[in-house]
Design a protein around this nucleic acid. Structure first.
Length: 271
DNA sequence: TTCCAGGCGTATC
DNA sequence: GATACGCATGGA
């Protein structure tokens, strides 16, 4: 990693990284774009650890961040130890994926917290991204931090009414209770064979194939997980009727991110 | 007004 | 196992 310390900041030179593409592409919901003197600035959290990060046109500035925190927390969260040039080169053997990688080459898979991710994608079902962000924002504002499973297990669908999350409130309560009671152990699910992990997550009410896949990919860094929503379904029908190409083997989820972002911005067509 | 949003539970066949 | 339908909410 190519970084230096400057006053209280970490200055990082990092290829294959774009703040908009990574933080506002529907994998995370607690990052907010901020006006600033920089080209681009976002503020957000990982496990209630706050960060403001900017891009000045050349380098990334991790504001008020110690070298210890940068190395121990943020370098891992942003997956800086993974070479995305190599990933994109590999995926680019496939024509449609090549275009998707060229379109948003700065996407990186965030290593998010599994519990927060579980809640986020339960909320995401039959919902749109701005409203998902609003519900999660009200959730964090209410507790002063992202609630723990134990805190949320005390709630009822009625007491969560302030979220205005609709029918999803009862699912959040069930996820919290199963996690708090240890019926589901997310740290163990993370290590399970993928089929077993899916099955385990789907015992939670409101967690079906799509949400389980998102939790595995975005909250457990299971890069072989491949969430299929309406957008990806169209991609599969139009470009990969016989299934994903071999170049995606083991990193299907990362390929999915490039494809998802591309078709969403381009009204389905890859050309 | 109607439709839709990173789906899922339930009923029914 | 496949398919149809309802579901809370709010923006387009």
């Amino acid at each position: 990693m190519d970084y230096t310390k400057k006053h209280n900041d970490i200055i990082l030179y990092q290829p294959d990284f774009n703040l908009d593409e990574t933080l506002d592409c529907g994998q995370a919901f607690r990052w907010e774009k901020k006006p600033s003197k920089y080209e681009c600035t976002y503020s957000g959290f990982f496990l209630d650890r706050p960060l403001t990060v900017s891009y000045d046109g050349e380098c990334f500035i991790f504001h008020d961040t110690s070298e210890e925190d940068f190395l121990a927390v943020w370098a891992d969260y942003f997956d800086f130890k993974t070479d995305y040039s190599e990933i994109k080169l590999r995926l680019s053997a496939d024509e449609a994926l090549k275009r998707a990688c060229e379109f948003a080459g700065g996407i990186r898979l965030l290593k998010q917290d599994s519990w927060e991710c579980l809640c986020s994608f339960i909320i995401s079902q039959n919902n749109n991204i701005p409203r998902i962000k609003g519900i999660i924002s009200r959730l964090c504002e209410h507790y002063g931090h992202f609630p723990t499973p134990s805190e949320m297990a005390e709630e009822t669908p009625e007491s969560l009414g302030f979220l205005r999350s609709g029918f999803r409130a009862k699912y959040l309560v069930d996820a919290a209770q199963k996690t708090a009671e240890g019926v589901i152990e997310l740290d163990k699910v993370r290590e399970m064979p993928i089929g077993e992990a899916r099955k385990s997550l789907m015992t939670i009410k409101g967690v079906g194939p799509k949400v389980a896949e998102c939790v595995l990919l975005f909250g457990m860094y299971r890069t072989e997980a491949f969430p299929v929503d309406v957008w990806i379904k169209r991609v599969m029908e139009n470009y990969y009727p016989a299934g994903l190409p071999d170049v995606t083997q083991g990193i299907e989820g990362i390929a999915q991110q490039y494809l998802f972002h591309y078709v969403r911005q381009n009204h389905t067509k890859i050309d």
